[in-house]
Computed example of a mutant assay.
Amino acid sequence: MANVTCNEESIYIEHVDEQNGTDTIHSLDYPSRKNKVCLEPAYKNSNLSIFLRYIN
């Protein structure tokens, strides 16, 4: 399992919608808090970093 954060908050990814390029995420501290985010991968020093951007 990888440590994943969004806006410095630990989250888990519930669902990946590859067709729309979005993910459904939940806060680990507040599991009932559900958000849809845009997935933006970026490569740095041969490591994959994932940037999640909230969709308004």
Rank of each mutant, 00 (worst) to 15 (best):
I11W: 01
V37S: 05
Y30M: 06
P41W: 03
N7C: 15
S46T: 07
E9P: 00
N47C: 11
F51T: 09
A2W: 09
V16C: 10
E14L: 15
R53M: 13
H15M: 08
P31I: 03
E18V: 05
E9M: 13
H26P: 01
C6Y: 14
D17Q: 02
H26Y: 07
I50R: 07
L52T: 02
R53H: 12
S27P: 00
D23F: 10
H26L: 09
L48P: 00
A42Y: 10
E8C: 09
L39C: 12
L52V: 02
S49P: 00
E40Y: 05
V37H: 01
I11N: 01
I13C: 10
S49Y: 11
V16M: 13
S46W: 05
N3K: 07
I11L: 06
N20L: 09
I11P: 01
H26N: 07
N20F: 08
T22S: 11
T24Q: 11
L39N: 04
V4Y: 12
I55S: 14
N56A: 15
N45I: 05
I11S: 02
L52E: 04
C38N: 10
V37E: 03
N47T: 07
V4R: 03
P31E: 03
D23N: 07
E14M: 13
M1Q: 03
K36V: 03
E9R: 04
N3M: 14
S49N: 10
K44V: 09
S10N: 11
S49L: 14
Y43P: 00
I25H: 02
N45G: 15
M1K: 00
H15K: 02
S49V: 10
I25Y: 04
S27L: 13
N47K: 07
T24W: 05
N3V: 14
N56E: 12
S10Q: 08
C6Q: 11
F51P: 00
N7G: 15
K34C: 11
I50D: 06
Q19E: 09
N45R: 03
G21K: 04
L48S: 07
V37L: 10
K36L: 08
N7Y: 15
I11F: 05
T22D: 03
H15S: 08
E8N: 08
P31R: 00
N45S: 13
